[in-house]
Design a protein around this nucleic acid. Structure first.
Length: 426
DNA sequence: TCTGGGGTCCTAGGACCC
DNA sequence: TCTGGGGTCCTAGGACCC
């Protein structure tokens, strides 16, 4: 007999801000925000910052006024720190159920099927308290028969003080109440576009969405919509994914800290992005058969000349070798780079990924692939233990004057001894 | 001065084939 | 007037997620 499904969504509250607070407890109770790469947008806000009206995704410079007036503490993103804290949270969750799906850096679904129904709220409270105690990170937990309902529950749990961070929608009457108080735009899978369309048709709450006719929603939103509505009714359509399948494409792109106007700098940046992408490629034991390079000027500067172009290369032999990939990427960059433009951003995309062990060899291949493979293995292991750019290709440049801004980055407290020693000394 | 980055899935439409 | 029809594969673009 198979158990009826029961999911818990564990969601870290204001995750990046919470990570910073673990190492800066005096920030507790104060407004704090964390910025995206290049210090561009606000991507995490403490409750106090939310209360000031600072919006998610808002450009930093637009919020600068409010921030300065209210003494909001600002952090650049520190993904090394957040990634490590995230691992600690998930390791803690794994103590409570063998089946954990890591959904994002700050969210996980747990399989609670078979756990005693009457006690799941108490169990959730234990999970929440343990994560807080072991990692310092506060979480909200939503429990329900489907992932979509668990997301709804988690959302309500986060904003309703009464439930103390854990809400179980399998308790009679709770599902309807939660769906009534959830705006349709807050349902998992309903983005800005669909929100506008649904609200235009008079569907404003998650409850109303759950009550629409199957045929109608099929026409409006396709099969995706039908699944979503079924999930809201308690019919499970999205099972837990316990192992992530290998990625089908790997991208690395960054905005520049200042405009790039020379081919040399552009090629350095592209080489640096290729190196990062190739490392990811090797981590999942894949090789890439196709490479795309793109570059763009600042789309917000309407008065400056615009150039936005990409070029693709079919690689003669699928590879994970950084040097080889840099070679093709540089050629591609040369093809589209134009003098007289101020480039804002560039990126590299690796696609047509396949398992490294199955890669086809080419009779006329001029590279000694055994040797380059050893070189890559050595490079990766040196960088893994001594820091990510200890060994690098010369093409990436050393000064990297184009690299992104991160003026307010905290030290990587948990992973970088050198930085920690600097903090102690200062 | 200043506007993130990295993914996934689905659909529609064209090419191609028999 | 009327132009076969249906399957499969691929790609571009749209929508979404955090």
């Amino acid at each position: 007999m198979s158990l009826s499904p029961l999911f818990a969504l564990v969601d870290c509250n204001n995750f990046y801000v919470s990570c910073e607070r673990v190492f800066n407890p005096q920030l507790e109770g104060k407004p704090v925000v964390a910025l995206s790469n290049n210090d561009g947008c606000i991507v995490a806000r403490s409750n106090e910052a939310k209360a000031l009206g600072i919006k998610m995704g808002e450009p930093f410079f637009k919020a600068r006024d409010v921030i300065e007036r209210n003494g909001v503490v600002v952090f650049s993103s520190n993904y090394t720190l957040y990634g490590d804290m995230s691992r600690r949270v998930f390791a803690t969750l794994a103590r409570f159920t063998p089946e954990v799906e890591i959904y994002s850096i700050d969210e996980a679904f747990l399989n609670l099927a078979g756990f005693e129904k009457d006690n799941v709220t108490a169990y959730g409270q234990r999970i929440r308290a343990t994560v807080k105690q072991w990692t310092g990170i506060p979480v909200s937990i939503g429990i329900a028969e489907t992932k979509t309902l668990a997301k709804v529950a988690g959302h309500v749990a986060k904003y309703s003080a009464k439930v103390e961070g854990v809400l179980d929608l399998t308790i009679p009457g709770y599902r309807k109440k939660a769906l009534t108080m959830t705006h349709v735009g807050d349902v998992w899978g309903i983005g800005r576009r669909l929100t506008r369309r649904l609200v235009g048709k008079g569907i404003k709450t998650a409850l109303q969405l759950s009550e629409v006719d199957d045929g109608w929603i099929r026409k409006q939103m396709g099969i995706v919509g039908v699944r979503m509505v079924h999930e809201l009714r308690g019919i499970c359509c999205f099972p837990l994914k316990l192992s992530a399948p290998p990625k089908k494409g790997i991208t690395c792109s960054r905005s520049f800290g200042r405009p790039v106007t020379t081919l040399n700098e552009m090629k350095e940046a592209v080489a640096a992005y290729v190196s990062r992408a190739a490392l990811e490629l090797r981590k999942q034991n894949s090789v890439a058969g196709h490479l795309t390079v793109y570059m763009m000027t600042n789309r917000f500067k309407v008065k400056e000349p615009l150039h936005n172009e990409e070029v693709s290369v079919k690689l003669p032999v699928a590879t994970d070798n950084t040097g080889e990939l840099i070679h093709y990427a540089s050629g591609a960059a040369e093809k589209i780079f134009k003098v007289g433009y101020k480039y804002k951003k560039a990126g590299v995309i690796l696609t047509e990924l396949s398992p490294a062990c199955q890669s086809q060899t080419d009779m006329f291949d001029s590279l000694d692939r055994n040797r380059t493979e050893k070189l890559m293995t050595t490079l990766d292991s040196v960088n893994a233990c001594m820091g990510s750019r200890t060994l690098q290709f010369a093409a990436q440049g050393t000064a990297q004057p184009w690299s992104m801004r991160c003026e307010k980055r905290s030290p990587s407290y948990t992973t970088n001894w050198n930085e920690l020693l600097e903090v102690k000394a200062s």
